[in-house]
């Protein structure tokens, strides 16, 4: 155990906008981030600096341009920038969780099954997975009547609680949180804070974007500042 669970080395991300005459938008350059098990690192930096971009690169949702993204997976080190699609899926199933700012709704699937799905994918029996999903949704103050409904018609806060339950249920060793509490009321924010703290106590390495400084102060061990690139701020202006 040399400490880190997730790290980047010289991470570079530039967008090439082919539909805008091939304009190049440099966002991340030489990012070195290292997160240990049990630690929560909050990403900081002005709007447009590249916090969400970094987070998406870490999840493999955006492809890195250069550098490496290393993650401890099944006791070994995997470079996500070089991993093929199948290995990334496996890492996401077992090691790397992600709570996005908004739930991407799957039509007609009940909330309970949306939360249970990652558990079943990891081999849990469907009934046991549903029981866990039910417990977590209840803890997030989701009334039982909503568990059986697809979240398409839910309020923003309700959808986000489904999203949180789905992200926290499996107990991923590495967890990425993009504005996890933005649409929650105070009571549910407290539940989210408790979930993050419990995940850390269980050894999870957590990377988060928290615009809510109160939440950030309650969960983060330190800040990591994403420096805006001069070219990026010029293009974004």
């Amino acid at each position: 155990m040399s400490g880190w669970a997730l790290r980047t080395e010289g991470l570079v991300k530039t967008f090439t906008l082919h539909l805008q005459g091939g304009a190049r938008l440099p966002v991340l350059y030489g990012v070195d981030l290292s997160v240990a098990s049990g630690e929560c690192v909050a990403l900081a930096g002005p709007s447009g600096a590249g916090k969400s971009t970094l987070m998406r690169c870490l999840y493999g949702n955006y492809g890195a341009e250069g550098g490496r993204i290393l993650i401890r997976h099944r006791g070994e080190t995997v470079d996500l920038t070089a991993a093929d699609a199948r290995l990334v899926r496996e890492v996401r199933r077992e090691t790397l969780g992600h709570v996005s700012q908004f739930l991407r709704v799957i039509p007609r699937v009940p909330s309970l099954d949306i939360v249970a799905e990652p558990l079943v994918a990891r081999g849990m029996a469907p009934d046991a997975a549903r029981a866990e999903a039910r417990a977590l949704l209840s803890r997030l103050n989701m009334p039982p009547a909503l568990h059986a409904l697809p979240p398409a018609t839910f309020s923003g806060g309700e959808q986000q609680r489904v999203n949180l339950a789905r992200g926290f249920a499996p107990g991923y060793p590495v967890l990425l949180l993009d504005e996890p509490t933005a649409s929650l009321d105070a009571a549910n924010r407290d539940v989210a804070v408790a979930l993050i703290r419990e995940a850390k106590a269980a050894g999870a390495a957590v990377v988060g974007i928290f615009h809510d400084t109160d939440v950030r102060d309650r969960v983060a061990d330190r800040l990591f500042t994403v420096e805006p690139r001069p070219e990026a701020s010029r293009s974004a202006a």
Partner: peptide, 15 residues
């Protein structure tokens, strides 16, 4: 990966 190709398309045609 589906979400990578659709959220961060690299090729001009995919964009």
């Amino acid at each position: 990966l589906t979400d990578r190709v659709l959220d961060d398309p690299q090729h001009e045609y995919t964009q």
